[in-house]
Design a protein around this nucleic acid. Structure first.
Lengths: 195, 195
DNA sequence: AAGTTAACTGAACGAGCGTTCAGATCAAGC
DNA sequence: GCTTGATCTGAACGCTCGTTCAGTTAACTT
């Protein structure tokens, strides 16, 4: 039996990526076999290689896709107002974006070491670009005298770590919803950087 | 060749743990084989099983050891002064402790999912106990009117994530030393929680 | 109706995996 | 100097791994 009805490339490709994302997030890249991914999609393992040259490329495409999504989503959401409003927008955007796709976030932070050197460098550049968006806001705010920040680079990294940290403890249906969490974090960030 | 001169249990055991820690941190638990660990120590793979019942127990003992070190180190370092001084001590302790053992920290955060359910629960309890130490400081400070904190639980998690985040970017010989980093973080934390 | 081709199966490749264990080796106790 | 027991080797167990590929199937083209 081959090519069951209604099974096409445009459908199978995304299903493979979705299965890989779920399994990698749950068990880790190295602990998941190509056979497990294939079984999850309902294929034999050989069929996967119509969609990815190898397992490594599958991981990279997940990470790269996630980072590109993040960048374009922020470009679309970023206001052109002053530093304070832009910082608030960034905090709320970052939390909302990350809470909405916990699996992708998990993989993006945990599986970097399973990338080849070359792929690692590519993801590193994308991440740095994103962090630059926040640092520019902090620099602008400091230049305007609204922020009291000794070291914008270090503050950028501290804030990113704090904001991304929500994904390690947040659970749907928990005590606080995403908006309430964002409210609290924004209040802390504001106090931490205010002049 | 068996039991080369000067090779004893008291030496081999720690060497196995050290090799496992280094390799797990570098490549991930699932990606490291018992044979690699044995080769790193200079043994045949079978000899490892004189020191650990299986690979899982080796991982667990690393994580448990790390968490127990963390707890006892804080108990020894914690001052009995007021909330403000205790919070500063906690911030500086947490950063210094984590920067001093990047490999153990990395494993403790990345390899939780490779623990059995039972072992995962044990580590979870230890981590929660540690976080309680910080939350108690925040509660005390709020009770005394020194801290302005809407939600001590959430603030605890946010601060821990921010502080632990230093390990993801800190590099020895970088622009800032551990003390300078701790100074900056303490300044941010203080502003974030101050009344 | 025949031909083409994308999509997939089924089986195989060599390699490496965690774990076990009989036997070799060596330090220490008598 | 003989025995004991901790320590380690060397080899094997059954199994799974990522990847390849000849062959099969079914949707589309003509």
């Amino acid at each position: 039996m081959a090519r069951t009805q209604g099974s096409h490339s445009e459908i199978t490709g995304p299903r493979i990526h979705a299965a890989a994302q779920r399994l990698f997030a749950r068990h880790g890249f190295a602990a998941v076999s190509m056979r497990q991914i294939a079984a999850d999609v309902g294929l034999q393992v050989g069929a996967l290689y119509n969609y990815t040259p190898d397992k490594q490329a599958l991981l990279f495409s997940l990470l790269e896709g996630h980072m590109l999504d993040l960048m374009t989503a922020w470009e679309a959401a970023a206001p052109s107002s002053g530093p304070l409003a832009r910082l608030e927008a960034f905090v709320r955007f970052h939390i909302a974006f990350h809470l909405a796709r916990p699996e992708a976030v998990f993989i993006a932070y945990m599986e970097l070491r399973n990338l080849t050197e070359e792929n690692f460098a590519k993801i590193g550049r994308l991440r740095h670009d994103y962090e630059q968006r926040l640092e520019q806001i902090l620099r602008d705010g400091r230049a305007e005298g609204r922020f009291d920040i000794a070291d914008t680079k270090l503050t950028t990294l501290a804030l990113i770590a704090m904001l991304t940290g929500v994904t390690t403890w947040y659970r749907d249906g928990g005590r606080l919803g995403p908006e309430a969490v964002a409210d609290h974090y924004w209040s802390m960030v504001l106090k931490a950087v205010s002049a």
